[in-house]
Design a protein around this nucleic acid. Structure first.
Length: 485
RNA sequence: CGGGGAGUAGCGCAGCCUGGUAGCGCGCCUGCUUUGGGAGCAGGAGAUCGUCGGUUCAAAUCCGGCCUCCCCGACCA
């Protein structure tokens, strides 16, 4: 008999075909389904629960750093969107326009927001008059529409959900500090809650946000060796305040333009979790954001399992639930335990508890970790702390595995030829130096499809300078290259 | 947006070339036997063949438009 390596067999193995694995697991695990409009998806309850967990944990951090939530209109008059030239140029190819209200053509077209700097800037100009009005620290949870050519569930959809912070400050230094504070908040969030290690740094001129002075971002490596941008924080300088006339009078009675920032993370993070942690058997959710942290599978053997096993399973579910664990008792009849094991593994539940006649007799439950498939009996006495401790270990292990993967797939290369072959054959990050010239950046992108994901900030550099991987000139920009989503 | 592939039951597919009563596997429903890693047998339900139009006595099948998905590029969170 052939040993079954793959315990889940209704999805394509990730190692065989990553793209197919990704879309299949998202649909079969019921995270999302395609809507009948190009590039649009329905986020199903199991997927939406992940987003809700992300929201809850992110919202807490946003508020703890002094920001408040508000809500702005989803339509932006064309005249407002046009004000910042670079902003318009960057976004106009992907803006959806409302041209009619009912049967009447509108006097002025309305953009469905591709991002809200313009509408929020126009409001800030009304609200900000004095240095005493600053800083303004507002966040909004909203939907966004960008008419993308190529779409993929969660990673790039025509409509997506996100949070966008928009702040205004009295000085350039304050604005920059805010930008970096949020960048670090995002990094900490990705690592703590999503168990995804990220590198952070600056974007190049070519990759920065349309209208920003400087864009910072966090980037992670997915298990197929491609990079994913997971969050951005923009220092807008006075670009928008000058065109939206956001002015205040300072303590010296001088009129000044405000210094602004904007920053966001989106439902893309759900896709990041799928791609960073998933394996051949399906999803592996980090416990802190898993829709279900524990699934209890009763072993339905014997005539009297409903009288013996089931009550113990129900009681166990109740105890865990009361302890704050997101737990489900899968007491469906007509599915064998083995079927349920595979199903919940595919759907990424971090921990499974099996309770059968043997366990009831021994006052134990068999715990099976999704991340390692390791099995261990736990006493039913004082179960909640044991489960919590296992969930913590799983969270940590997923992070450690992802970090190990990134380290194994971050390459340093001798020359451009090696660069090309590494990108082509091994993927992953290449950590190297760049002269700062757009010719080299463009040439590398054309020839290898790799882009500069981040330019490391001073404090993160491991060497002060080196020669550009492309032209050989001395450069002070230490960068990470990768092919990206 | 360019190049390629695809859309037939909830899922995966055959049928199309050569027009003539829509099929298979899994899943679903019922019953019995099972149940500690995706159970077995028997019976049953489920499809306006992506959509709109054309050709024809007759279209899943031939022709055209459109929509959606997948892969590879150009563009982007």
């Amino acid at each position: 008999m052939v040993k079954k390596e793959r315990l889940v067999k209704n999805i394509t193995a990730k190692s065989e075909d990553f793209s197919r694995w990704y879309t299949e697991v998202i649909r079969k695990a019921e995270l999302a389904d395609y809507a009948p409009i190009k590039g649009m998806m329905v986020i199903r309850p199991y997927g939406y629960a992940v987003w809700e967990n992300i929201q809850k944990l992110m919202d807490k951090r946003i508020k703890e750093t002094g920001h408040e939530n508000a809500y702005f209109p989803m339509f932006i008059p064309e005249s407002l969107l046009e004000k910042e030239a670079e902003h318009l140029e960057g976004f106009s190819p992907e803006v959806a326009w409302v041209t009619h209200g009912g049967n009447d053509e509108l006097e002025e077209r309305l953009a469905v927001r591709p991002t809200s700097e313009a509408i929020i800037g126009s409001m800030y100009s009304k609200w900000i008059k004095s240095y005493r009005d600053l800083p303004v620290l507002i966040n909004q949870w909203a939907n966004i529409v960008r008419w993308e050519k190529v779409t993929r569930p969660f990673l790039r959809t025509t409509e997506f959900l996100w949070q966008e912070g928009h702040t205004a400050h009295a000085t350039a230094e304050e604005g920059q500090a805010e930008t970096l504070k949020i960048l670090d908040l995002y990094r900490e969030f990705a690592e703590t809650e999503l168990a995804i290690p990220v590198i952070s740094g600056e974007k190049t001129e070519k990759e920065k946000f349309a209208g920003a002075e400087m864009t910072y971002c966090i980037e992670a490596l997915m298990t197929d060796g491609k990079a994913l941008q997971m969050g951005t924080s923009h220092d807008l300088g006075q670009h928008f305040s000058k065109v939206f006339n956001i002015r205040f009078e300072d303590q010296d009675q001088q009129l000044q333009y405000a210094w602004q920032t904007s920053w966001g993370v989106s439902t893309r993070l759900v896709g990041a979790v799928v791609m960073a942690h998933g394996d051949d058997s399906g999803l592996r959710f980090p416990p802190r954001i898993a829709p279900l942290q524990v699934v209890i599978v009763p072993i339905t053997i014997g005539e009297d399992w409903k009288e013996t096993v089931l009550p113990v399973a129900q009681n166990t579910a109740r105890i865990l639930s009361e302890a704050g664990v997101r737990v489900k008792l899968d007491d469906r009849e007509g599915f064998t335990p083995g079927w349920k094991f595979s199903e919940w593994e595919m759907r990424g539940v971090p921990l499974r508890l099996e309770i059968g006649p043997r366990d009831v007799k021994n006052h134990k439950t068999l715990a099976v970790r999704r991340d390692t498939r390791e099995k261990q009996p736990l006493s039913l006495d004082n179960l909640a702390p044991q489960v919590q401790s296992l969930l913590d270990k799983i969270q940590q292990n997923l992070f450690d595995q992802a970090l190990q993967f990134r380290e194994d797939n971050t390459h340093e290369v001798e020359d451009y030829e090696e660069f090309k072959s590494v990108i082509e054959e091994r993927r992953g990050f290449i950590k190297t130096f760049w002269c700062g010239g757009s010719e080299c950046e463009n040439r590398i992108k054309e020839e290898t499809m790799a882009t500069i994901r981040v330019v490391l900030m001073e404090a993160d550099r491991t060497e002060a300078s080196g020669s550009c991987i492309c032209c050989g000139e001395q450069g002070r920009k230490q960068v990470y290259f990768a092919r990206a989503y």
